[in-house]
Amino acid sequence: MRVVSKILNATFACCFSTLVVLGHAQSPEAKKPDAEIRLATTTSTEASGLLGVILPLFERDSGIRVRVISVGTGQALKLGERGDVDIVLVHSRPDEDRFMAAGFGSVRFDVMYNDFIIVGPQSDPAKLRGLPSASGALKAIAGANLLSPNPPIAKFISRGDDSGTHKKELALWSDVGIVPKDIKFKPWYIEAGQGMGEVLAMAGNLQAYTLSDRGTFNAYKNRVGLDAIVSEVPGLFNPYGIMPVNPAKHPHTKHEAALKLANWVVSPAGRAAILSLKVDGQSLFTPGAPPVK
């Protein structure tokens, strides 16, 4: 019976702490917001902690409450196209241009950028350190595996989930004439189909290379045991755009409030808020458009 009472105790403790957590989550609701909008965004903005820093400031300045749906870029844009959200914040420029051209967004602003990094095991088995371009580095990974395909010298993990980062990776491969579809199922090219955090954990466990945005990598690097191998070279910048959903397509969306958010993130107050998110003294995102595409 002692076992039972222990279990019951543990169950009670769990229930109680859940109630406490719920109670805390409820308390900010006490202040009635003027309006509420829904923002679809990528996991990177949520996981990096950016939204946690900037949205409370916006909510305080505007009285507009922002509900965040954090998914992949592909799904975020789909939610916008369907009018399921009022505004989207994503990072895949060609898709954003298509979204605007099809009339789903009312306006697009360059919000900020960070950069991608090719991360990998400290031993750098494909000798990528010091290579001058991102696609050159990917080509070197493919090249290293030509010598010893099985077991591979250098594994690469692809997000494989149509996210902005996945699309970026595919574009980098195609720059050097490699089609990942052809290398699928080869033991060194692993298509994970998961989010950035999961893929970084996988790369750490398998001691493989992958492409990551800097923000998520900084948040995970102490845990996953990977190094930044190639960074700040052409092809690795990662711009974010914000687009309110076009009320002409979806009249029920809260366009006015959404536009306020878009205008705020590019305002001096918004830019300062973006810069204020720092890890190890370095800002994770730089406001505005990137220096090179």
Binding site: G72, G74, Q75, K78, L79, D162, G193, G195
Partner: peptide, 13 residues
Amino acid sequence: PTAISLETAKGEF
């Protein structure tokens, strides 16, 4: 199930 989860994440409902 994981393929369904992936399709959902891609917005391919």
